[in-house]
Design a protein around this nucleic acid. Structure first.
Lengths: 233, 233
DNA sequence: ACCTGAACACCGTTCAAGT
DNA sequence: ACCTGAACACCGTTCAAGT
């Protein structure tokens, strides 16, 4: 207990602007651009201020602190995900297209991976998406807290699968790397594990993007199959 | 392409100490203590130096930079997970006790959640754990890349489920919060979603720890059921 | 109502200098 | 071989002062 109160942007009323020279929307948009270009570590209040040709500290008029700015940017992520109506396409199609769209959004905005799960998802877009996901699993036949459990299981899977993909992309993007050399280094680290070396060798002949997509699909189908079994018993 | 080479602690030989006043092991142990006590943001090279009654910059003799120090600490996480032998207890029991132990380790070291997936898992302990997990799924009957896909699916699920749990614990720990008040705030944010309010109300009568454990089990059983189905078809 | 710059208390890291 | 302190280039945030 520190005496601090838990806070979130979503618990406070935004400033009502009289003559909005700058606006929250503009700031969040600029922040997302910076995040997309330079990643989470590339976003600083100073840089963001400069981008908006303002002093870094001007931003504090619109936003309590950097964390709340991130909460705002984070919520936008959810706006980009699509959740089809289960009554139109069935719950399996609905939830798997949602899963694919969540993966796509994360890959498009790699910084979101560092925020997902860490930042409370209480923004309007996050809530809307969750609500739609709940409806999908209700349509599937889940009842009570099982609805939440099902949503959580799919979300957890998508998130957990996509995160390493992003980490890999970031690594590849940040460094001058040679695929062959990289494999050699990894193989050296795994030298004591013949089993893993074998699987590494198998992968070497496949397109990495295909392997990743296949892994995702394999797991997603499994998760949905598993959830479906909860319905019949 | 930036001209930088990709590096990892595991690709370089450690310094061979002649008279090791300090050692990598000691530094990593101290770093983990600091991490357990104060979290990821609580670890700074200066603080760690002070804890070891050394100058902050002395650490750079043992470790290339902070990222590599985190790689070292991160690998220790894997040492704490247990993966039973599938030939003794069967693949379902083996993989689910591994899943539970991974969850327990993450909850014990909340900072690990911010490293998992972000930091390359190339350390000896990470590799050992992965190797054992692969053996479990091989024993189950998976072949080829399916072994990796199965391991990835379970890992992704555990990680994705546990992360929000940790975020919640950290929030509760950091702030002076009243359960009732908190629920009120969340309910206000979700005011437009009657469906979610209903589920919020249901949860209010349950022990949060029980709800979380139930959610984890529900999902885990589903994932394993789903994987099992891959074996029969 | 909005914006500013100076200032504070931090960071990670480099490097020449010490022993 | 190991450790140090000074220095550099950054951070987020507060706050009194401006318009």
């Amino acid at each position: 207990m520190t005496g601090k109160q838990f806070t979130s942007v979503w618990f406070r009323e935004p400033r009502k602007a009289a003559t909005p020279a700058r606006s929250r929307e503009e700031i969040v948009r600029a922040a997302m651009e910076l995040l997309d270009e330079e990643g989470l570590t590339g976003l600083s209040m100073r840089k963001l201020g400069a981008k908006l040709s303002a002093g870094a500290t001007s931003l504090y008029w619109y936003v309590a602190n950097k964390d709340e700015l991130l909460e705002l940017a984070y919520d936008q992520i959810w706006a980009e995900m699509t959740v089809p109506d289960a009554h139109e396409v069935g719950w399996r199609d609905a939830s798997s297209s949602w899963a694919y769209s969540m993966r796509a959004v994360m890959l498009r905005h790699p910084w979101s991976a560092s925020l997902l799960g860490h930042v409370p998802a209480l923004g309007p877009h996050a809530l809307t998406a969750s609500d739609r996901m709940r409806k999908v699993f209700k349509a599937a036949g889940f009842r009570g807290l099982d609805v939440d459990y099902a949503v959580a299981a799919v979300t957890a899977f998508v998130y957990g699968m996509t995160l390493p993909e992003i980490a890999w992309d970031v690594t590849v993007g940040d460094y001058d790397y040679d695929a062959e050399e990289m494999r050699g280094l990894v193989a050296k680290a795994a030298a004591d594990f013949p089993d893993m070396l074998e699987s590494l060798a198998m992968e070497a002949y496949e397109d990495p993007a295909v392997v990743r997509a296949t892994a995702f699909d394999f797991g997603l189908v499994s998760v949905l199959d598993g959830l479906e079994r909860r319905l019949v018993t």
